[in-house]
């Protein structure tokens, strides 16, 4: 996710430092980013001079001290409150007083993450969609202590990157996941309740509502294990019964049916082909 966000920043002409604790991860991400840009050139969406410019505006480091000159740091580390809070504490020591700390968290509270820093007024939620380099939407959330100036500056930065920000409160799942995670669970529960076959559920949603993908195909793509993790993140904080892990989902994960990545979830996959839909 971080690599995609870095591409958004670099493509907009910002000097972008990619920091990861893993050197291997950084190298892999740099290769993937170069590959993405090469493809964009091949498809005629980017000229090669611009590609070179984007690549030269990106640098990689495993040393947090190299973030000292950054005006904005967007964290996309593991979805773990302690890890994110600790990182912000370390950034306090490295970055200038007015550096903005943005978090790409999907499920955690911006206010709680910001409490890891001694300057929570400079922290803000900036939730990109996967793949960040292609998706325009960013959910922007102020924490309880975020200053108006921080929010405004961060918002303007997203616009300068050609992205489309929307404003949400600092609530679990913001808009997108708050609507999507329970909806996907409801689709799983409909299968479990024998309402219809997975293929019929997906076809109904696509034909009736014009969605590009049915909920069960989407869960297969996200990964059934990831859906469990999302439920486990949301249910304890919302106590929304729709966010609780559906028993069928848990059983499928236990059986190794993780979706596309394991070759079988609600549908069966072989290479790029999908069966049962």
């Amino acid at each position: 996710m971080g690599a995609g966000i870095a591409l958004v920043a670099a493509r907009a002409g910002f000097a972008t430092v990619c920091f990861d604790r893993s050197g291997d991860g950084l190298e892999k991400a740099a290769r993937q980013s170069a590959g993405f840009l090469d493809k964009s050139v091949a498809r005629g969406k980017l000229d090669s001079a611009k590609r070179d410019q984007v690549l030269t505006s990106m640098s990689q480091t495993t040393r947090i001290e190299d973030l000292a000159d950054c005006d904005l740091v967007i964290e996309a580390v593991f979805e773990d409150l302690a890890a994110k809070r600790e990182l912000l504490g370390r950034l306090d020591a490295v970055c200038a007083e007015d550096t903005i700390f943005a978090s790409n968290t999907s499920t955690l509270s911006i206010t709680e993450i910001a409490s890891g820093s001694k300057r929570p007024e400079r922290a803000v939620g900036m939730h990109f969609c996967l793949p960040a380099q292609l998706m325009k939407l960013i959910e922007m959330s102020p924490g309880i202590l975020t200053s108006d100036d921080t929010f405004k500056t961060a918002w303007q930065w997203t616009e300068a990157c050609g992205q489309t920000p929307v404003k949400t409160q600092d609530k679990p799942g913001f808009i997108l996941n708050a609507l999507l995670v329970p909806f996907n669970n409801d689709a799983i529960r409909a299968v479990e309740a024998g309402v219809a076959e997975p293929a019929d559920i997906d076809r109904a949603i696509k034909a009736g509502l014009g969605y590009k993908m049915g909920p069960l195909e989407l869960i297969d793509l996200i990964g059934l294990d990831t859906q469990v993790r999302l439920c486990e993140a949301f249910y304890p904080i919302t106590l929304d019964p729709r966010a609780a892990t559906p028993p069928l989902l848990r059983r499928m994960v236990a059986a190794g049916l993780l979706g596309r990545k394991s070759g079988r979830g609600f549908f069966t996959y072989e290479g790029n082909s999908m069966f049962g839909a």
């Binding site: 939407l137 489309t164 929307v166 404003k167 409160q169 708050a178 609507l179 993908m213």
Partner: peptide, 30 residues
């Protein structure tokens, strides 16, 4: 249930109607 949640979120001030609708269109391709 999804539309009910969206209407409730609107009452609770999670986001504006325009931003909620835009999020679903841009983020989920609806």
């Amino acid at each position: 249930p999804k539309y009910n949640a969206a209407l409730r979120f609107l009452d609770e001030g999670l986001a504006s109607q325009a931003d909620m609708d835009l999020t679903c269109k841009l983020g989920l391709g609806y």
